[in-house]
């Protein structure tokens, strides 16, 4: 589904991704762990095309997409719920969703896709005429998820979906994520999290990043039980 071969990325002269190689299969749920500033966000941005890969190759569904612009990758089914949610503050909830729906290549009817999103996030339906900027943090996260969901992605990437949310809201965010996965066995999920426990509970595999490199990889169980690893890289 997704394959990275020694991908490098830079901010100016600062190397932020250092020869990243990873492979994610269709239907998998993978998490990327690591403390702040290690390059997790940059990795997701590079996969979706907001950042160029200076060297290396990115393959998606067997195609080399390294040179594709972001909008093309999105239309082909790669979706990112960005760090900080990034909803359009001066657009209503419904218009936020319509912006995302307008670009789906599937051609499903808009109304249907809106209803699908509203059935998973009833709160959004109640607020659909409100400006997105006036929603609470948790509701904005739901909207950000809804925008991605309405694109009917094959590869869904989430960047710290629990950042800055109260524990009870985090719980409902992950409930929503599980709901999204129900009946979508084909959906591939890549989640970046600082909250190691929550992340490993919701994924089957994980990668650990340190200074732009992948320093460890394994199944959730392996990572969970590796106390040295946790001490050294994850600080728990």
């Amino acid at each position: 589904m997704l394959e990275l071969e020694s991908v490098d990325a830079y901010y100016g002269t600062l190397k932020v991704l250092d020869s990243i190689t990873m492979k994610v299969d269709k239907g998998e749920s993978v998490t990327i762990l690591g403390p702040n500033g290690m390059g997790k966000t940059t990795l997701l941005r590079t996969i979706v095309g907001l950042m160029p890969a200076r060297s290396g190759r990115i393959k998606y569904k067997g195609k080399d997409i390294t040179q594709w612009p972001a909008h093309r990758r999105v239309r082909e089914g790669i979706s990112l719920v960005p760090e900080g949610r990034r909803v359009f503050p001066y657009l209503s909830v419904e218009k936020n969703l319509l912006v995302a729906a307008g670009t789906t290549s599937g051609g499903r009817r808009e109304e249907d896709s809106l209803e699908t999103v509203y059935s998973i996030f009833p709160d959004l339906k109640a607020k659909r005429k409100d400006l997105a900027g006036n929603l609470s943090g948790g509701q904005q996260q739901m909207l950000a998820l809804g925008r991605s969901l309405i694109q009917s992605p094959s590869l869904l990437m989430l960047d710290e979906p629990s950042l800055g949310l109260a524990p009870i809201v985090v719980k409902s965010v992950y409930q929503a994520i599980r709901k999204i996965r129900e009946g979508r066995e084909e959906l591939t999920l890549v989640v970046v999290e600082q909250n190691v426990r929550v992340a490993l509970e919701n994924a089957s595999r994980g990668y650990v990043m340190q200074h732009g490199r992948v320093v460890a990889a394994g199944t959730s169980e392996e990572l969970m039980n590796d106390s040295k690893l946790k001490e050294r890289y994850l600080g728990v």
Binding site: G49, L50, A70, V74, S79, R86, V87, T103, Q151
Partner: peptide, 9 residues
């Protein structure tokens, strides 16, 4: 950037 993530050229 968010607009690009919505598939906007």
């Amino acid at each position: 950037e968010a607009a690009q993530l919505m598939g906007t050229d």
